[in-house]
């Protein structure tokens, strides 16, 4: 059987919020390592990849590798039934037709049990090549969310330009142009609130704000976000989640015609 108990159940709620608008259905792959998911949005422009390591659960039991084919909207609805301080357990058989979510209140006076039907999903797994990125930008996750929100008022796309002076986000629309420049803070240690840039080569790329805005739904999961950019390549947007794993998004660039 498969059983994974997450004491900080609110994390599962947050992971769900971070993927449900991007992906309609996906397989949650459960192995001894943990729970992972890789899925593209329906237009094949972006991809989400997440890992919840087994050591983040207590206990974690996976007798046999299984894939749980899940409709995200249905799972998101069920996750909304869990309170923020509930302990969440995910459970299924070795050849499952259903998955069970159990929500226990901290004092264990209330236990909710939701059983959900699984789907057969033909997932195409993509190989993500190891890339030497031109620039790796770390910044407060809330700052990145703010930038995406603000520039969405100006245009559909954001141009990310990174050079020795820092990083600039700019958008252009019918009403005009918006530019947000961030300088690199002195990096002594990577505390929250700092912008740090690891620059190998100056780089400039354009991305659809609609998708970046979907990615920022992961903001409650992490204090810092990392953008890895390389000329003419997809951007990787990563949120590392303390003690359990990560959620990573990839977005194909817009290319000049």
């Amino acid at each position: 059987m498969f059983e994974a108990r997450l004491v900080q159940g609110s994390l599962m709620k947050k992971f769900m919020e971070a993927i449900k608008d991007l992906v309609k259905e996906a397989n949650w792959d459960c192995t001894g390592t943990g729970i992972s998911l890789q899925a593209m949005d329906t237009s094949h422009v972006s991809l989400v990849s997440l890992l919840l390591r087994s050591d983040g659960f207590d206990p974690y039991r996976c007798d046999r590798n299984i894939s749980l084919g899940i409709n995200m909207e249905s799972m998101a609805k069920i996750m909304k039934c869990a309170s923020n301080d509930d302990v969440i357990t995910i459970r299924s058989e070795d050849h499952p037709d259903n998955v069970t979510f159990v929500f226990e209140s901290p004092n264990q006076e209330k236990v909710c049990d939701y059983e959900m039907k699984l789907m057969d999903i033909d997932s195409e797994h993509l190989g993500i090549p190891d890339t030497e990125y031109d620039a790796i930008i770390s910044m407060p996750a809330s700052e990145f969310q703010r930038i995406c929100r603000d520039l969405s008022n100006i245009g559909d796309s954001v141009k990310i330009t990174c050079n020795k002076d820092g990083v600039q986000f700019s958008a252009q629309g019918d009403t005009g142009i918006g530019k947000i420049a961030l300088k690199q803070n002195a990096v002594i240690d990577k505390e929250d609130g700092q912008v740090s840039i690891e620059l190998n080569d100056p780089v400039s790329l354009t991305f659809a704000l609609r998708y970046l805005t979907f990615f920022t739904k992961a903001t409650p999961l992490a204090s810092t976000v990392t953008l890895s950019v390389s000329a003419k390549n997809p951007v990787a947007v990563e949120y590392r989640v303390d003690d359990i794993g990560y959620i990573r998004y990839y977005l194909a660039p817009k290319i000049e015609e």
Partner: peptide, 14 residues
């Protein structure tokens, strides 16, 4: 103008 590229042109099916 710029055109949205597809992710599958960068990442190949496994």
């Amino acid at each position: 103008s710029s055109k949205q590229s597809s992710l599958t042109s960068f990442f190949k099916k496994m």
